[in-house]
Design a protein around this nucleic acid. Structure first.
Length: 112
DNA sequence: CAAGTGACAATAA
DNA sequence: TTTATTGCCACTT
């Protein structure tokens, strides 16, 4: 039973990838949102950690995951905030500022 | 082996 | 309103 936690620990990361992977185009999710979806709203930090690990680039749209305020910081993603903004804009996400996305419209999942 | 650091968020003051 | 603190756990040094 003690190992059960070990399995869940590893599953947490995988679960994060699964959720993030299901984010539709033109939408963005916050770390806390994803963390809550995987069943661990307190591990918001590790959601970002899991994405930083980014074991499957191209499959996991880490650029669709942003802060609770919808803000993205430079140096987070692969090519930088500019690339990240470009990708999101290309998918239809509206930007309020150079580092803020319109969570009012692009928040996911829709229907929370 | 132990302590520190870190893609955050929620609550308190 | 903004700033500071706390919780959470993996990974690095």
């Amino acid at each position: 039973m003690a190992k059960q936690r070990e399995s869940e620990r590893a599953g947490f990361f995988s679960r994060v990838y699964e959720v993030v992977r299901q984010i539709p185009e033109g939408c963005v999710a916050t770390y806390g949102q994803v963390a809550k979806l995987v069943g661990e709203p307190r591990k918001a930090r590790f959601v970002g950690y899991a994405l930083h690990s980014n074991p499957e680039p191209g499959v996991i749209p880490c650029h669709r995951v942003v802060f609770a305020d919808g803000r993205i910081c430079e140096g987070f993603a692969f090519g930088g905030a500019e690339v990240q903004r470009q990708l999101l804009e290309d998918e239809g996400v509206v930007f309020l500022d150079d580092n803020h996305v319109d969570l009012r419209e692009s928040r996911w999942p829709a229907g929370l």
